[in-house]
Structures are given as C-alpha cells and as structure tokens.
Design a binder for these strands. Structure first.
Lengths: 146, 146
DNA sequence: CTGCAACTTGAAGTGAACTTCAACTCAAGG
DNA sequence: CCTTGAGTTGAAGTTCACTTCAAGTTGCAG
C-alpha cells in the first residue's frame, strides 16, 4: 500500500472522510486520483492533517492554517526541515496563547480575593467605573498595559 | 445612573447590544424593564458579561457557561464569595487547558528535530506505521499515555 | 467474474454564536 | 412639546466547520 485511500487516511488521522474532502475543497490537503476517480493520498498528507488538527487545538481557523501550509513547497514533498520551520513558527503561536491563558489565570487568581473578575482593572478598587471612558471590554486581560 | 441601558452595558463590556440580547434569550444574563419596555441591567450583570467573555477566551461554549452561571444564587445579587467560588472553579479549567497547550508545545518542540509532528508517536521512529491499529488520531497529544 | 464495502458528486442540512433588517416605540435634552 | 438617538421585536441571514443524503461508480477478496 503505497498511497492511502480516503478511508485509510481517515482512520489514521482520526478525521472523517467528509472532513478530508472538505479540507481538500478548501485547499488544505491534496490528492491524486485513480483511473476510476478515487482519491489517493501521499503519505505526507498524514503530516498535513496532523498539523491541521494540532493547529485547531490551538484555536486557529482553517483560513490561517491554510496560509501557514502555503509556506510549504508545492513542487516537492516537504522535508523534515520544511516541517521543522513550520513547527517552530507554530510553537511561537502556541507560546503566545499559553501566555494569554496564564495571564487570564493569574488575573482570575488575583481577583478571587475580591471576586471582581477584573473588568476594567477592578470594580472594587475602582467602584465608580471611572475608567469606563478608556475603551471597552476587559482590556487589562486581553491587551494588558505595557 | 443606577442601572445600565443596553448601550451602556455594551460600551462597558465591549459586547454588542445584539449579542447581549442574544445572551439574554439564552438565559446567560438578566434584565428588568422600564415602563416603556426597555432593558435595564443591574451593575452586577457587568460581572456576568466579564465572566462570559473570559470563559469564551478559554474556549468554553455558551452552554457550559450557562451551566456554570447557574450555580450563582438566583434570589440575591451574587456576593464576592459567590464569584470567588466560580472563579476558583474556572481557574481549574484554565489550568487544564494551559497544560494541554504546554504538552502540545513540548511535543512540537521535541519533534522539530525530526519534523514529524508526532502523529502516532513519530513517523520517523515508527516508519512503517506499525501503530496504526492502535486507535486513530494524534492520541499522544490529546490523550497522552500514563 | 461477481458481490459488496468503499468510493464519487453536488446540494442541502446542522449548530454555534451572532448580526442584520424593517418597522416601530421610547427617553431625554433643548 | 418635539426631535432624535437609542431601544424594541421576530425573522431571516451569516460564517465556520463540517455532516448527511441520494444516486450512482469503483476496487478488490473470494
């Protein structure tokens, strides 16, 4: 078995065939066809699907994933080095997201004492909502100062 | 200004009025009405909306958020202690998610050397896909062994 | 060579989380 | 009082990421 039928790729990757067809329509993965028009996947597509799944775990949209994958070479099967570059890039994104979550957690922790949820710094510290003029939303958390 | 009109709550929370109406239909927040049928929000709803936004950041669905909020007392305005309990609970969820991300990051880091993305452990270490029978998907990452 | 599981397509459906629209009413400053 | 920006409703529309369906075709084990 040199190439994979859609069912094989589905079984190996844990992604439903319908989703794989969808990914293909969306330009995230590619296949060749048999004489009878059935999809056959190169083994390297397994890696692409793995990447897609991982990126989704991180909360990245398919659009962004497509953009990332576009950085892989079209003409040849991506090498380890190609994947390494991409992975390194995503490691950065992951790191960022982890930091956001940690900030969220620390805010929550810091505010458990007062129960304020730190909307606009803290409603207890700032009871009159004096900061209301300063833009909307829990700025402190999403875009912390400095 | 003792209570907030929908526009005020929207401005303060950074959530569109249409979304606030939606949240109300979905039972996530509550309002009283003026004689002329306009919504007026108690200031404590600001906290609920903040909580909703934070939970969404963590990737929680509105359904789950509603369930969490259901643990707040209906009959009285939630106290600091009420929020503290809820926040502590969510801190756990956040912590969990952070751990998942960190595991993801470490996997990615560990695999940058081989470019494998660790689908079924590692395709380099395991080139013949011998583990294919062992369930689908990047199990190692989502449900790591031990 | 046959039978049947697995594949093909386009179109339509799903659910989550909202937004937009149209037609109308309210609240409050001048 | 009057104007006007803000609010009201239900229904329909939107985007994302798929799934389901129906009707037909293919590939391979026996």
């Amino acid at each position: 078995m040199e190439t994979l039928a859609i069912g094989d790729l589905a079984a190996r990757s844990g992604v439903a065939p319908s989703a794989l067809r969808y990914y293909e329509r969306e330009g995230l993965i590619r296949s060749t066809r048999t004489g009878g028009n059935q999809r056959r996947y190169h083994r390297s597509e397994l890696r692409r699907v793995a990447f897609i799944k991982i990126a989704q775990q991180v909360g990245v949209s398919l659009d962004e994933i497509r953009e990332a994958l576009a950085e892989l070479p079209e003409e040849r099967t991506p090498t380890k080095a190609d994947w390494a570059r991409l992975s390194a890039h995503w490691r950065g994104k992951l790191e960022e997201r982890i930091l956001l979550m940690q900030r969220l957690r620390d805010q929550l922790t810091g505010c458990i004492g007062c129960g304020c949820l730190s909307l606009q710094r803290c409603n207890l510290i700032n009871p009159a909502d004096r900061l209301a003029a300063r833009g909307t939303g829990p700025q402190m958390i999403v875009n912390p100062p400095e």
